[in-house]
Each structure stands twice: as structure tokens, then as C-alpha cells.
Write a protein that binds this DNA or RNA. Structure first.
Length: 447
RNA sequence: UCCGCAAUAGCUCAACGGCAGAGCAAUCGGCUGUUAACCGAUGGGUUCUUGGUUCGAAUCCAAGUUGCGGAGCCA
């Protein structure tokens, strides 16, 4: 078959008046008898291809009238401007000259009508072809690209951390255990401890990869396997960390707005909300957050809501608390100096107030909750030894980590950013299950 | 793990103690501007499972399974 002038649908408008070749899949079709409208999808966009009986070979037109959803084909034809033409980007269509069927799809299950969550999740491998998923995963790719771009351009070095680890990175989470030639090993829940070693070698580093938590969490914000970006910086204070995070995230949001107007339109995202995401973000202490929540709870009439908002100083925030705090601001808000007891063992205590630590979480607006969590790390050798002993961690497993404090220990800080939560927020999605191609959630690992 | 809700055609749902139904999809036919096209026709059912109540159960009851929403835990 001839494939002269093979183009991508995203570039269709550049070829007005020219004869071109497209390859792709039937997204939808309208049959008008002697006239067929084929919406052809090639991964870069959707083009309306019009088959007129009188313009085509009789057999090829007959094939066109039998096309089923998701059948694959190669067409040649002439590009013309037509305001009636739907598609992505739309406004141009192709008058078909030849049409070759590559494969006839039979009974494609996902139709243009509505479907339930369970059905779509069972058909995730096919659901990815739908325009909404197309939009989300393209934005996800840009978010990853822009996060890495910004870091690479600002002197941060990508240093990969292992996925198979001999011990937990944090004391709280349940890990997936592996059989490592007869010895137990675990899937990483964070690259943080290795980042601290890498930071001492390279100054400013980050790791980016999948992390695994065997928690039986069943919420709109949890995945069993999720991707985390973790920068770690030598000589950084908590304030440096917040400055850096707001620069990084406002850059990413700006880039998505610049590159993905079409995708955001498909998702019906409120662009005003994203345009507000500029540095500086709001900053409040844990103490102030608790006070504000207590005041809000006191003023709340609905008893159910009142109970959800109730909080005592010293407790970690639940999902309703995070949402309530975030709603008090029109941009992301940093909450810093959490109680030491609810945070990880390696977080630096506040001087003169050891009951709170130099930690900071970033809460996204619109109820998306915590998207980053970070802190200054303990760099004093004796203090970190003491914390490991108090928590009851097996010292031998952490010996290498503790040794970092013996050779030129420095103040340092870092954070972890949950990629899927960030994608859900920027895309305005109700659930993280659509932010990753093949979500691993409680009781689901297929497909 | 706890609380709440649900499960009926390939899909989305209706029928709520008395004949198992619609729209979409599929198949066949018609139509030269469709945007979730429209019009006509055809095929399509272990009503999640097990047990119980009843003359009679998709419908009521019990247990289980699966899913969804929320809580907790967290990024």
C-alpha cells in the first residue's frame, strides 16, 4: 500500500488542499446511505473523514459502510476546511479517495454512551482509547516532563533509588514482602533514605519512580502502586523547601495551561482555578490550622459535619480536615510544624519545642488534599540514633543510613510529591484511578 | 477494618409480591452534512450465589460474594 504524505491528525490543518494519508482507528461513524462520516482516531487527534459514494471505488465504499467501532484502517484523501467538522482539533475534514481496512473490530464493548465504573475498570486496556482518558494521560505525561525539566534546569540531579529494599523507609506503612533468595525483602514505599545518601554525594538530587504500599486504603486518593517524585537538598531549610515547592508547582501548572487547552476542555476543567496557582502559596502552622478548624467546627450547625471537623491538638488531619483547610485559600496552602508524634522518625524537631517538627505538607485546593509531604531531616548523629532506638527500628537494617550522619552531616530537607494526586488535581478528576494507565487499587490488579 | 448503598439483556437502567421491559450496542433495510444523527425491522435473560417466607419472589427475610460512596491510614 502507498503511504505517501502520511501525516498525524494533530497537524491536519497544515495540509489544507493537499492529498494525505491517515492511519488509525474508527472512533465513531454516522451512516447516511450514500454518505458516511467516519471519525478517525490516530492517537494524536480525531479527524472527520467523509466518504461520498460517487467519489470512491464501489468496493471500498461498501467496506466503509460496514466499518465497526475501533476497526483499523488506512485512508487517503484531500484535506478541506469545514466549520461543521467535529474532531480534535476539528474544523478540517478529509474527503476520502481510498480506504483500506486493516482489521475489522467485532463487538467493541465501550460504546459512546455511558458506562459504570466497574465495567470501565475491567476494560481499562480499551478505555484508554476514549477521549477523556486520552486527555488525562497526555496531561500526566506533560506534568512528569515539566517536573523533571524544572529540576534538571535548576541544578537537581536525577539519581535513581532501588525498588527492592531490605527494610522499611518509614515506620508506619505496610509493605509488600518479597522472597529475595530465601531472605525477606520489600517493595519500596519511598526512596527517601537513599536520597539522603545521594544528596551528600551530589548536593541537590531527586528520584522519580513507582512506590508501593500494602495499605487497605479504599478512597478516591489512594493507589497501591503510585509514582512519587522526591527531591532532597543539602543545606536546605524548611523555608527554602517551601520556596522551591511553590516555584516547581506553579511552573508545572503554567506549562499545562500553555500546552493543553484542548485536553483541559475535554475534561471541562475550570481554568480560572488553575490560573490562580501562582507563587507565593499560603503558609500556616499546624497550631494555626488546628485553631481555625476548631473555630470552624464550633460554627458548623450540621452535627455530622461538626463531628468530622472535630480535632484535638496532636492529632493528624483526616481527609475532611484537609479539605476544610484548603477551602480557606484560593491556592495551595503549606501547613508546617506538625506534631512530632504523627510524623516520620527522621524529621528535625523545632528548636525549643520538640513536640513539633520541621515538617511541611502542601494541601491542594478544591478538596484534593495533601499532594506533597516533606521536612528538614535530623542531621545530628546522636539524635537520629536515639529516634531509631525509641521507635524500635532494627538498628542493623539502618546502619548505613545512620552512618551518613558521621561523615560531614549537614542540615538538609526534602519532600515527596504524589504524582497521581497532582494529576487528579490539575485535571479536576474525582478519583485517582483515572490518572494512571493501569491503576492498582484495593482488590484490583486486572488488567 | 468500620459505616452506608447497590447487583436485572453486551452497556445504562425500569419493573418493587402476580406475563421480564426501554434506550443504546449488535444484525438487516432506508436516507448526500452527521455532531450521543434519524426512521423501520430482527435477535438477545440462570434477574449475583445459597437458603428461607409465600398459592406465587427480580421484588420480602437471612447469610455470603462482588462493586460503589464515605471513614481510618497516607503521597
Amino acid at each position: 500500500m502507498t503511504l505517501h504524505n502520511l501525516i498525524q491528525i494533530a497537524d491536519l490543518a497544515k495540509y489544507e488542499g493537499q492529498e494525505i494519508t491517515l492511519r488509525g482507528w474508527v472512533y465513531d461513524r454516522t451512516d447516511k446511505g450514500k454518505l458516511q462520516f467516519i471519525q478517525l482516531r490516530d492517537g494524536t487527534g480525531i479527524a472527520q473523514c467523509v466518504a461520498f459514494k460517487k467519489d470512491m471505488d464501489e468496493t471500498e465504499f461498501a467496506n466503509a459502510s460496514k466499518l465497526s467501532q475501533e476497526s483499523s484502517l488506512v485512508i487517503t484523501g484531500t484535506v478541506r476546511k469545514d466549520d461543521r467538522a467535529p474532531g480534535l482539533p476539528g474544523g478540517y475534514e478529509v474527503g476520502i479517495k481510498t480506504l483500506q481496512l486493516v482489521h475489522h473490530a467485532e463487538d467493541y464493548p465501550i460504546t459512546p454512551k455511558e458506562h459504570g465504573v466497574e465495567f470501565l475498570m475491567d476494560n481499562r486496556h480499551l478505555w484508554l482509547r476514549s477521549s477523556r482518558q486520552w486527555a488525562i494521560l497526555r496531561i500526566r505525561a506533560t506534568i512528569v516532563h515539566e517536573l523533571r525539566n524544572w529540576l534538571d534546569d535548576h541544578g537537581y540531579l536525577l539519581v535513581d533509588t532501588p525498588i527492592i529494599t531490605p527494610a522499611a523507609g518509614e515506620e508506619t506503612t505496610t509493605l509488600f514482602q518479597l522472597d529475595y533468595f530465601g531472605e525477606p525483602a520489600y517493595l519500596a514505599q519511598t526512596g527517601q533514605l537513599y536520597n539522603e545518601a545521594n544528596m551528600m554525594a551530589f548536593g541537590k538530587v531527586y528520584c522519580f519512580g513507582p512506590t508501593f504500599r500494602a495499605e487497605k486504603s479504599k478512597t478516591r486518593r489512594h493507589l497501591i502502586e503510585f509514582w512519587m517524585l522526591e527531591p532532597e537538598m543539602a543545606f536546605f531549610s524548611l523555608e527554602d523547601l517551601m520556596d522551591m515547592e511553590e516555584q516547581l508547582l506553579s511552573h508545572v501548572v503554567k506549562a499545562v495551561l500553555a500546552k493543553h487547552q484542548r485536553e483541559l476542555a475535554i475534561l471541562e476543567r475550570d481554568l480560572n482555578k488553575l490560573e490562580q496557582i501562582t507563587a507565593p502559596f499560603a503558609r500556616i502552622s499546624y497550631d494555626e490550622a488546628v485553631e481555625r478548624l476548631q473555630k470552624l467546627a464550633a460554627e458548623t450547625q450540621d452535627p455530622e459535619q461538626k463531628a468530622l471537623l472535630a480535632i484535638e491538638w496532636g492529632s493528624d488531619f483526616g481527609s475532611p480536615h484537609e479539605t476544610a483547610i484548603a477551602e480557606m485559600f484560593d491556592r495551595p496552602v503549606f501547613v508546617y510544624h506538625y506534631p512530632t508524634a504523627v510524623k516520620a522518625f527522621y524529621m528535625q524537631p523545632v528548636e525549643g519545642r520538640p513536640e513539633v517538627c520541621r515538617s511541611v505538607d502542601l494541601l491542594a485546593p478544591e478538596g484534593y488534599g495533601e499532594i506533597t509531604g516533606g521536612s528538614e531531616r535530623i542531621y545530628d548523629s546522636e539524635l537520629i540514633e536515639q529516634r531509631v532506638a525509641t521507635i524500635g527500628l532494627p538498628r542493623e537494617a539502618y546502619a548505613w543510613y545512620l552512618e551518613l550522619r558521621k561523615f560531614g552531616s549537614v542540615p538538609h530537607a526534602g519532600f515527596g510529591l504524589g504524582l497521581e494526586r497532582t494529576v487528579a488535581w490539575i485535571c479536576g478528576l474525582p478519583h485517582v484511578r483515572e490518572t494512571i494507565p493501569y491503576p492498582r487499587i484495593l482488590n484490583r490488579k486486572y488488567p
